[in-house]
Nucleic acid binder design. Structure first.
Lengths: 231, 231
DNA sequence: CGCGGCTTTGATGTTCATCAAGTAAAGTGG
DNA sequence: CCACTTTACTTGATGAACATCAAAGCCGCG
């Protein structure tokens, strides 16, 4: 991890429109002066389980995973963290130490703002507080809904979901490079590594996708969506 | 449902300490004047899926379930709603219509405060906003943690969890009356009604619990906890 | 180059859902 | 209040979905 040469100030950051839109110029400036921008290589830990939650960190570029240690060998991956996501730091307002980890699964740029400063602004700027609340509400709703849906799907439906999510939401391309291992896919959607591989092979044999190592090419999006929906 | 003769004003309501502690007297009074208290019989719907989220509703007495229609015949129960819980109304800040239902599973008293008034106070009182955020954060964390844990448990572990939760958290008694049917237990912990019954019978045969219809008596809390932990 | 981690495939076993069928309880209308 | 219908509860038998175990090839890395 290294401190990034800041490419732009908060005023011109795309993230501004998401949360900071209602800030007064002085508030914006306080954040701008206190924040730090970090660059993480793929695989680097952005925030570890048990770390002090001193900063509100959000990702501005790249891709991460929000996860939690299950035991020595396995993680539970809660979900992906994409730019402008607020997630993973929800507990920042109720806990002092992080209950989760966030790890870069692509080269990632993150911004850290001391949580005390955020809290101060919440106290003084109601509109900002409201934005935070709305954002938390939305993010939470999303995770819960996704999780309940995934739980009811069969293995094929879950794999279909992951492929579609990465293809459509993250990379916006039918061909993409899997940012995570088979094992991690398993940890994300609650199945075994072996079955992840098995079902990816089935999809390949059925002509739904092409696989070349980490590279996936979606051939039949329509069918994939049917499998995802049907469960 | 009937409008309840208000038993106390907000100032003396036990709920005050939970969220309203930082309110100024005038704010407290605004809430007190605009709120309505309702009484629900067991089985009555407190908030239906698709209803307008015009009010922030919280339960002050009784027990409810937060649930969502899965299809014609089955619900997904997200979790229980106990007094002083804020849950089920998280989406109130990001949606205009409820994505979930809340139904009384015991005789229940609920308080409804127009959400506009809550939002106004959030805007003007930062401490109150902060309390809301902290509460949301905690509640969300809880649900997610519980759900991830439950998913990894086997059927016996899940049933053990429900029995322990009701016995220890809700009724604080080793003997209690199940507020929900076998089918609803199944909908809460993602299994079939048949298996709920089967495993309850197993627990009875193993001398872990006594069953008389809806009445459950926990005989071996220690073993039950082991089953719950082991999964 | 050898070690550990990731990937892959096959065989086996367990957990659990589904189906079936019957009893008990609870609501409904005449 | 009683026949009727529906809903909840219960048990057993069967099969499908999935985890586990085993074994081998592959790749990166010290």
């Amino acid at each position: 991890m290294e401190i990034h040469t800041t490419s732009y100030d908060c005023q011109h950051c795309p993230f501004k429109s998401k949360l900071y839109i209602d800030l007064y110029a002085e508030e914006m400036q306080i954040i701008d002066e206190s924040r730090k921008e970090f660059f993480y290589k793929k695989g680097e830990v952005i925030c570890g389980e048990g770390d002090d939650l001193g900063n509100l960190i959000y990702i501005t570029k790249g891709l991460g995973k929000l996860h939690k240690k299950e035991n020595m060998k396995t993680d539970q991956i809660i979900n992906f963290v994409v730019p402008y996501d607020f997630i993973g730091f929800l507990s920042i307002f109720s806990e002092t130490k992080s209950k989760y980890s966030v790890t870069a699964i692509e080269d990632t740029v993150a911004c850290a703002v001391p949580v005390d400063i955020i809290k101060q602004i919440i106290l003084s700027n109601g509109k900002f507080a409201m934005k935070i609340i709305e954002n938390m509400s939305k993010v939470t709703d999303d995770i819960l809904e996704t999780r309940f849906k995934l739980n009811k799907k069969h293995l094929r439906g879950r794999i279909a979901y992951v492929i579609l999510f990465l293809s459509e939401e993250v990379y916006k391309n039918t061909t993409f490079t899997m940012p995570i291992s088979r094992k991690e896919i398993a940890e994300l959607i609650n199945m075994t590594t072996e079955n992840v591989i098995r079902i990816l092979s089935e999809f390949r044999q059925d002509g739904i996708i092409e696989i070349d190592g980490k590279t996936i090419k979606v051939l039949d999006t329509v069918l994939l969506k049917k499998i995802c929906e049907a469960g």
